[in-house]
């Protein structure tokens, strides 16, 4: 279980050194998107149009925060369950996405895309939403404001705590962790 401090955009070298179970503190820019926004991003790719942000080396955080109180950049902001993004993730990975942050299991297609195109899936702690919000210094809606909490935001983070769940070698922390502690 190694610990790393990484800054976005992530490179192939950055993600290749990560193994399932490693703790990573992310710095720099992340983008937020949930299923509704993912559908629109994929539609743009399929019709050859430009995306609202550069996918190359990007990290997407699956979150729908609470509304900020006056003076706060963002409300509580923990991860949402990731499988809803599974149908869209492989095509984004193919187009340069290097990291995804969420919670819960991914399907085989996403795990294969992570191996093939070198990307990682990070788990954040679900329900640690007030704590995680502390790591978010700035937030700005850059697309689809009509989606409310599901709009695409550019967020600036400092030492955002995540754990590697799916690495570029086909490992899965959920499967391995459970095997280690399961009593038959």
């Amino acid at each position: 279980m190694a610990e790393y401090r990484l800054t976005t955009p992530l490179s192939d070298e950055d993600v290749s050194k990560l193994k399932a179970g490693d703790i990573v503190y992310l710095n720099g820019t992340l983008y937020t998107a949930r299923d509704a926004a993912h559908k629109r991003l994929v539609d743009l790719i399929l019709s050859g149009e430009e995306l609202p942000f550069d996918l190359k080396g990007a990290v997407i955080y699956y979150v729908g925060p609470t509304p900020p109180k006056p003076g706060e950049p963002i409300g509580s902001a923990g991860p949402t369950t990731s499988y809803r993004m599974d149908p869209y993730a492989p095509i984004l990975i193919e187009h340069g996405l290097k990291g995804m942050i969420g919670k819960g299991k991914r399907n085989q297609a996403v795990r294969e895309a992570c191996q093939k195109h070198k990307a990682v899936y990070f788990g954040a702690v679900g329900g640690a939403a007030a704590l995680i919000a502390k790591a978010i210094k700035k937030a700005e809606v850059i697309a689809y404001p009509e989606l409310g909490p599901e709009a695409v935001r550019r967020i600036e983070v400092e030492d955002f705590p995540v754990v590697v769940v799916n690495d570029t070698y086909g490992n899965d922390l959920y499967e391995e962790g459970r095997k280690l502690w399961e009593e038959k």
Partner: peptide, 12 residues
Amino acid sequence: KLGIGAMGMGGT
């Protein structure tokens, strides 16, 4: 005994 653990990362 399932071993799922906190956030499913393996544990007791």
